[in-house]
Amino acid sequence: MADNNSGNVEFLKIEDVDLEVERRGAGPPLVLLDDEEGLTRESPLVDELAKSFEVIIPSTPGFGRSSRPDWIETMDDIAYLMLDFLDATGVEDATLIGFSLGGWIAAEMATKNVTRIGRLALIDPYGIKVRGPWDRDTQDIWFLTKEEVQVLKYADPKNGDIDYTEMPDEKLEVIARNRESFARFCWQPYMHNPKLKRRLHRISIPTLVIWGAADGVITTDYGKAYAGEIPGARFEVIENGGHFPHLEQPELFWEVLGGFLADAQQAA
């Protein structure tokens, strides 16, 4: 299954889900939960991480080429399944990093069980409701036009331009599935689990929350509130980075994340 852009890809049976798992590099385990658009796995960041880690990239149910049985309905379902996945891989003291929706899933997992997780990094994660019922914490990406969403998501909207017209159907199918699954899990309650905020205090491992200063979908204030619920979490802001700060400001981003990983490994 290996191709030029990826390492080894295999499918693991976790309960009745066929989970697509990609592995790159060698070293201590680092589990990377991709963003809902599948952009991170194709970025140079993964190559950087693969220099010192075995980077394990599972596609969560409904994303990439992982199956999505009907019973998978909520973030709880996904988080428990991904904990089962960690058990199946047997990783210990793993670093767990999640981007956007993947960050939300990583946070859910860490509130439930950190037996196999040594440290956590969340990058612009969705997942909580910060303010009151009349306040829009997360901009409504399905109500707005594609162009409006791109302005909110990127420090420089041009960075979000993607030409789909020349892509092979196989790749377009993955993109279409990703979008469908994103709506499946995040339409209502919109982009949050009402229970998550009150569970974040249970996260008992070193945690870094990184936020793009120019994220207009969920703002830095939201990020601060998110990090504030996790005991001892560090909160770092990437200037001129949007919702995917690692894609728009890779060097600044690596300074922050690389430092955290080095510190954490030394401490371990």
């Binding site: 594609k146 159907d169 279409a176 599935r177 994103f182 709506a183």
Partner: peptide, 23 residues
């Protein structure tokens, strides 16, 4: 009707949305 209201993700099958991505 604004385009985003005509096709929320998941309303039509994947194959339709593959065509949509291609325009």
């Amino acid at each position: 009707t604004a385009p985003q209201f005509r096709n929320p993700p998941g309303y039509v099958p994947i194959s339709f949305n593959v065509s949509a991505l291609k325009g």
